[in-house]
């Protein structure tokens, strides 16, 4: 569907050297997929989105949408619509006029426009708001108008640039499932940009984890969570313990990655054997779970998260253990 081939982008700045926003990025985004570009700010994810939309041109490399090289196409000629981070609703138009805009520009007949506007507003559950101005809507409603406006022309690809970042937590959770539902119902390929790993894990079919202009790993949320191929990915997605090999008596050139929920902490007095011994340095009660911070004898610190909780208190000597198949060994 979208084929990104060895794309680089550098920005020329006035005083310094050019900034390399993307370094030879290659990605394939499939039809009908909810794909997420995930990474911290400055990783190049928004730049990549803007290249797909056509707001920027790549410094090198090719972007194909449905087999066609779009390098020479301006944004208005690409079968792609964008939901902007700031929503970018036209303030001088009503909700209905905003949603109708794309179809009008495509010179669709009036009857089709009216039908699609109704359809799109129904899809985002804003049927009663057609005559309002954007300024009369709440942030969450504006967000939904932005989605309806981008979906109304039925593009092949919908690009979403941090669409939920301006909403409060509760609205955000609601919109996550809304967007997921819209993607399934419409069958349109969604490309989401976010820095929120939880959001990415919850919504995506596949995720590309990016850092400083590079794609580090592409895979399903489960794949990326269970099999991080990179220290950064392991650390950025969910919580991880990154333990130097030496502290566990293993190859010092390796880092052992273990998720906190896989680590079992038991009192040293039990006589159980484990990977290491240490002392509990902090206990945090999280409701359903309890988080233990353990300082190993070799000096490293790790976190264990467990249901319920053993009867441990701070300062107790403990043994930490986990099933070997749940850990990952990465090069330092």
């Amino acid at each position: 569907m979208i084929d990104i081939h060895s794309v680089s982008k550098s920005f020329v700045t006035r005083d310094a050297d050019p900034v390399h926003a993307l370094n030879l990025v290659s990605l394939e985004i499939y039809d009908n997929e909810f794909f997420t570009l995930l990474g911290p700010s400055g990783c190049g994810k928004t730049t990549l989105l803007r290249l797909i939309a056509g707001f920027e041109a790549p410094s090198s490399g090719a972007i194909r949408i449905a087999g066609n090289d779009v390098a020479a196409l301006p944004p208005q000629k690409r079968p792609v619509n964008t939901v902007f981070q700031s929503y970018a609703l036209f303030p001088h138009m009503s909700v209905a006029e905003n949603v109708a805009f794309g179809l009008e520009m495509q010179k669709a007949p009036r009857s089709l426009i009216d039908e699609r506007v109704r359809e799109a507003l129904a899809m985002v559950r804003l049927e009663g708001f057609a005559a309002r101005r954007p300024a009369q809507l709440s942030g969450g409603q504006q967000q939904r108008v932005a989605v309806a406006r981008a979906l109304a022309p039925k593009p092949s690809v919908l690009l979403l640039d941090e669409p939920l970042s301006a909403l409060d937590l509760k609205l955000r959770k609601g919109m996550q499932s809304e967007l997921k539902r819209l993607q399934r119902e419409t069958g349109i390929t969604f490309v989401l940009v976010t820095h929120d790993q939880e959001e990415a894990l919850a919504m995506s079919d596949r995720i590309a984890v990016m850092r400083s202009g590079d794609v580090l790993q592409v895979g399903t949320p489960r794949d990326i969570y269970d099999n991080p191929q990179d220290r950064f990915v392991a650390d950025f997605i969910g919580e991880s313990n990154l333990l130097p090999g030496a502290t566990l008596g293993r190859d010092p050139a390796k880092t052992i990655v273990v998720r906190p929920e896989h680590i079992v902490v038991s009192p040293a007095s039990d006589g159980t054997k484990g990977h290491a011994t240490g002392a509990v340095s902090a206990i945090t009660f999280l409701g359903s779970d309890t988080l233990y911070e353990v300082v190993l004898e070799e000096g490293a610190k790790l976190h264990s998260r467990s249901r319920g909780g053993a009867a441990l208190s701070t300062g107790d000597r403990v043994v930490v253990d986990w099933a070997r198949h749940l850990e990952r060994e990465l090069a330092n």
């Binding site: 707001f55 964008t82 902007f84 609703l89 406006r149 022309p153």
Partner: peptide, 16 residues
């Protein structure tokens, strides 16, 4: 420039 980007994104040519 975002509103104008949104317009272009929604198929408006320069004049419209």
């Amino acid at each position: 420039g975002t509103l104008e980007e949104a317009g272009r994104d929604l198929y408006a040519d320069e004049w419209r």
